[in-house]
Amino acid sequence: MFRNNYDSDTVTFSPTGRLFQVEYALEAIKQGSASIGLRSDTHAVLVALKRNAEDLGSYHKKIIKIDNHIAIALSGLAPDARVLSNYLRNKAMEEKLVYNRPIPIQLAVNLLADKAQQNTQSYGSRPYGVGLLVVGYDGSGPHLFEFQPSGQVLEFYANAIGARSQGARTYLERNFSSFKSTTERELIAKGVEALRQTLKDTELTSSNTSIAIVGKSGLKIFENEDVEPFLKQETALDLAGIDENSNSTDIEERNPVEQTQVNDTNVETMDTD
């Protein structure tokens, strides 16, 4: 059987110019449950699906507060995200202590990118196995960034990462133009609706959904019973502005995408989140 000779470390390119270890790390993101990020002119929102590995066990934490103006949502290896969030918290604190200002979001993600990139270029270390959506609010307004273990960081109007996230991305691509001037509540509702597109055989409940919103007035994270008001399907649909009639065509178009995603999600993993 074919064996890949160029994937045992991060410092060797394959003859076709690929770094397989880095690409595998990107695959680890897809093993984790989905995270959604989107923003309007005034706010940025995270919505994430929590998984519990065992029925008797607790749910993994999906949204982590970095400072009063930044939060991250993770898909992939949760322990790696802890390391990265701790690093970001330290950097945010440092900015507050030295310059007495909230760390600019772009600066925060750049620091994160530099840290992750180092792991792709040194022998004996592995890339982080987690993708992050970073939302924040600073002097230049609300921001949403996607961070990848390769060290790539890009800004988005809306994005989704993790298992079956293609469905959510399709939804976001179709609707993002209307996010611009929505209210806080509507924006969350649209995030929730996007997260619904990633579901299969499950429902969003107050125990498996996390929500965060950040704006000028700071960061709010909703967990457990606080999530309940945002989950009511009819209000969410209503607010998300989905036309009942066009639903069928939506699903038809979404289906082929879902099928390609099934392969990723059928793999049972305990450690990803």
């Binding site: 030295v98 310059y99 007495n100 772009q106 600066l107």
Partner: peptide, 19 residues
């Protein structure tokens, strides 16, 4: 160097120098 378009304000510079 960073493509951060948020400038330091007078109070940021003051805090930096005090430190």
């Amino acid at each position: 160097y960073d493509d951060v378009n948020i400038e330091f304000q007078a109070d940021n510079i003051h805090k930096y120098l005090r430190n």
